[in-house]
């Protein structure tokens, strides 16, 4: 850990970061070029910077509506799955119930199954229930992805809280549910928040269900909406690069604000502490 970082190290590091960021840099530089230059030249910088691609990206497709749809669906999914998952994670890690291993095994299995295996029955169900092209029609299938994920991550956070806290709460006459709601849950709040970010990102990024269930343009989410910028006859790269920059900004902000938590959530449970 205390290895010194020399100049060679920083050069390697800058190359690595540059390679990782290169697609974003190029897409951004393209998005501010005038239409004509996109197709003809591989110049990095354009002398005629313009924002016409941004105006066009927002005009040709309802990009902001897609973002709103994604936001609502991801938020609802996160709230529902965090509530249900925190109950389960608490019970599995801290209450004297049987079959804990079996329950966690089921959760793990549920987080591994391929979404395509449930797609057609869920499609039929959502169609019969009249939920195609609605927020709820996506929130229900998204629970299949987010609930196992949330239980899996939350349980690593719950188990780290010392058990003695519950014992003293019990001595003070708190009921088991009060102990959960007033003592353990608030203590686990940072972990809950971390889990919520990961669940939110997973729901924001989902493609397969969104593509199949919400087929009306006004109900599309960001990932599906972006993939429909391509038309059969022409590929409007100017619009696409501008749209990509617009939808990447919220993610960049999220990552910059919460990078520590995201890493903590991603690595929780993959290493023994």
């Amino acid at each position: 850990m205390t290895k010194r970082a020399g100049i060679g190290f920083y050069i390697l590091l800058i190359i690595f970061v540059f390679l990782v960021m290169f697609p974003f840099i190029w897409v951004f530089l393209t998005s501010i070029k005038p239409q004509g230059e996109i197709f003809s030249s591989f110049q990095w910088f354009s002398s005629n910077m313009t924002f016409e691609n941004y105006a066009s990206a927002l005009e040709t497709r309802p990009l902001l509506l897609y973002m709103l749809n994604s936001f609502v669906v991801a938020t609802l999914t996160t709230i529902i799955s965090i509530i249900v998952a925190s109950f389960t994670a608490y019970a599995v890690t801290r209450l004297p119930i049987k079959f804990k291993g079996l329950i966690l095994g089921l959760v793990l299995a549920a987080s591994m199954f391929p979404q395509i295996a449930v797609l057609s029955p869920i499609f039929n169900f959502v169609t019969d229930a009249g939920l195609r092209n609605s927020y709820l029609g996506l929130v229900i299938p998204y629970i299949t992805i987010s609930l196992p994920l949330a239980i899996w991550i939350l349980s690593t956070f719950f188990i780290k809280i010392p058990l003695s806290l519950e014992e003293s709460a019990k001595l003070d006459g708190a009921t088991p549910f009060q102990t959960f709601r007033k003592i353990i849950f608030p203590l686990a709040a940072p972990g809950v928040f971390t889990t919520a970010i990961l669940v939110f990102i997973a729901a924001w990024n989902e493609y397969l269900f969104a593509l199949t269930i919400n087929t009306e343009d006004s109900w599309r989410t960001i990932p599906v909406g972006i993939s429909f910028y391509q038309s059969q006859f022409s590929v409007p790269w100017g619009d696409i690069t501008a749209a990509t920059v617009i939808v990447t900004i919220p993610i960049v902000v999220l990552v910059l604000l919460f990078q520590r938590r995201i890493v903590a959530g991603l690595t929780s449970g993959s290493v023994k502490e």
């Binding site: 990782v20 939808v247 990447t248 990552v255």
Partner: peptide
């Protein structure tokens, strides 16, 4: 850390569109 998290965090469909370009 933030720089390497961004590719992971963006939707796969958006990444795929970028690479198509």
């Amino acid at each position: 850390r933030a720089a390497v998290l961004v590719p992971w965090a963006i939707p796969t469909a958006v990444a795929a569109m970028m690479w198509t370009f």
